[in-house]
Every structure is written in C-alpha cells, then in structure tokens.
C-alpha cells in the first residue's frame, strides 16, 4: 500500500478496507505533525451517521481484562454478527520507550473472528492509562462503522478517570478481595462506574467473590451519582454472569444518546492541549468547533484543569 492521502482514507473507509483503518490508527499514533494534520483533515471531510456503543473496561493489572474480553465478546457474538472493534493499550517502558504488546495472546478466540478487529497500541509514556492515540482511534472505529467498540485500559493510576470520559459505558473489573483491599478502590472511581464486575467467581474464589460483590453493592449505593449502576459477579471461565451483563449493556444503550460525540472530542482536546500545544492542529475546523463549544463550559474547564494537573 502506498502513502496514505485524504483520498485513499476516504475511499478506504467507504469500501470498508480494514487495512486503511489500521493505517489511519497509525496516523493517530504517530508523532509527526503532518500525520496528525492529515488525520484531522480526514475528520473534517469524512462524515458518518454511525453511532457506536463504546464500552470501556478498566481494572487493576492482572485482574484478567483481556481474558474477560475474549470470553465475553465471543459469548456476546454467539447469536449476532455485529462488527466489533477492540482497542487495547500496553505500557511503554520508561527506560527504552519500547513495549511488549501481548494482549492478543489472551484474546485467542476473538482474534480469529472475521467481524472482530483488535488493535493494541503502546501507551507511549502517557500516564493516564489510555494511550495517547486512544481518542482518535475510537473516533476512527466509529466512523468506520463498528457497532461496538471495547476499550481496554492499562490498569494503573488515574486511568479510570480518563477512560470514563472517553466511553459511553464504563465497566470496572475487580478481583475478589477482602475488606481492606476494597478500601483501595477510590470513591471517585466508583462514582463513575456504570457496571462493576467482580471477576473470577469460580472454583475456590467463588465464595470470596460473593462477599466482595455484596460489599460493593452496599458501597455503590452510598456513592452513586448515576441513575443506574450495576454490580455483577462474573467468571470468564464458566461464563457466569455473562447473560446479566449482556442485559445490563442492552439496557444501558437502549435509551442512550450521546450528544455530538462531545465526550470523545473533549478528551481529544485536553489530550492535544497538553501534548501538542494545540497549535499543531488548530487548522482543523472540527476541532475548533469543539473548542468553541466547550470553552464556555465551566465543568469542562474544571476537568481540563484536573487533567493538566495529572499530566
């Protein structure tokens, strides 16, 4: 394939060419100014009516996020042919800058499916747990026409805070654990959760999972600011709880209406502000529209402030 141009991007998206999508995500990952300009130029020119259901999955390292996604998505696709994109983020080494991206080895079942597109990205020393390029990658997948987009974050630090602003439905996966460990999960994160999953509810951990589940149900009721928050016990091995999770997602998206993709572009905004000093992409009219729209929004400015501090 030759160098990407605005025309190849548009015709590739029109003809449903996944290699072009993949190359477009590479543009988002790129540190080169002309790549980002091309990308934002594309955003300005390519319109799509498609509204994907965007689901973020976060949780501490080792909790089994990839295994869960492999197991749940194959369950989810048992009786439908939906087009699904999965974006995963692996940490880059602070020393060498390189990374090992092994998520697909844990997604053996879904990585073989024709209707599932999986793209792992390196976090590129972005501390937020989502990758530097994640917002644009989500946007690209939505424009491309995927019905469902799952985003798996690196499970560290403030990642939950950021990812919850990028997605329509925020799922937090936790391990069965004792009371003290539960204290470690911050109240601020619980507030943003749409669905809380207690994993590994099988075998010898089943009892512990139930205790954890019970405690979280109580905690959620105390902190909740959302109308509906769900708490479920699941097992990626036995598919326990998958039926309920499926229903919860259906219910969540039934009357869901995302206003003008605002969430995603608000994220892109603070991302780029901090990393590219906005000047690099200010030519983009779409982008400027977002800035205009949100510059009067005090809530957004507060958020922006918070994020800048984190970074």
């Amino acid at each position: 394939m030759n160098e990407l141009s605005i025309d190849t991007l548009i015709s590739g998206f029109n003809s449903n060419d996944k290699l072009v999508l993949s190359k477009a995500i590479s543009l988002a990952e790129s540190s080169k100014r002309e790549h980002l300009e091309l990308l934002y130029n594309f955003f300005d020119h390519y319109l799509s009516e498609n509204q994907a259901s965007i689901i973020g999955v976060s949780g501490p390292p080792g909790v089994g996020k990839s295994t869960f996604l492999d197991s749940f998505i194959s369950y989810f696709l048992k009786d439908k042919e939906s087009q699904v994109a999965v974006l995963t983020i692996d940490p880059s080494s602070e020393v060498s800058g390189g990374s090992i991206l092994g998520d697909k080895t844990r997604m053996e079942k879904i990585s073989k499916l024709e209707n599932v597109f999986i793209r792992p990205s390196a976090s590129q020393d972005f501390l937020g747990g989502v990758g530097l390029s994640t917002p644009e990658a989500i946007k690209l997948c939505e424009l491309f026409g995927f019905e469902y987009i799952f985003v798996e974050s690196v499970g560290v630090g403030q990642s939950e805070q950021l990812i919850s602003h990028l997605v329509d439905c925020f799922v937090l996966l936790v391990n069965p654990a004792g009371g003290d460990e539960l204290q470690g999960i911050k109240r601020g994160i619980l507030e943003m959760v749409d669905v809380l999953l207690v994993g590994k509810s099988d075998g010898e951990l089943e009892e512990k999972a139930f205790q954890t589940f019970t405690q979280f149900q109580t905690d959620l009721r105390l902190v909740s600011k959302k109308d509906v928050q769900k708490c479920l016990e699941i097992s990626s091995m036995s598919e326990k709880g998958f039926g309920d999770l499926n229903q919860s997602l259906e219910a969540h998206f039934k009357d869901f209406n995302r206003i003008d993709n605002e969430k995603i572009f608000s994220s892109i905004l603070f991302d780029k502000l901090s990393h590219f000093k906005s000047s690099q992409i200010k030519e983009s009219t779409e982008f400027n529209k977002v800035v205009d729209q949100f510059s009067k929004d005090s809530k957004f400015l507060a958020l922006l402030n918070k994020v800048s501090q984190i970074i």
Partner: peptide
C-alpha cells in the same frame, strides 16, 4: 523491547 521496538507477541 529493550532496544526500543514495539513488539507484538
């Protein structure tokens, strides 16, 4: 990865 490559396994 130590050399600075992004390595997919």
């Amino acid at each position: 990865a130590d050399f600075g490559f992004d390595v997919d396994i």
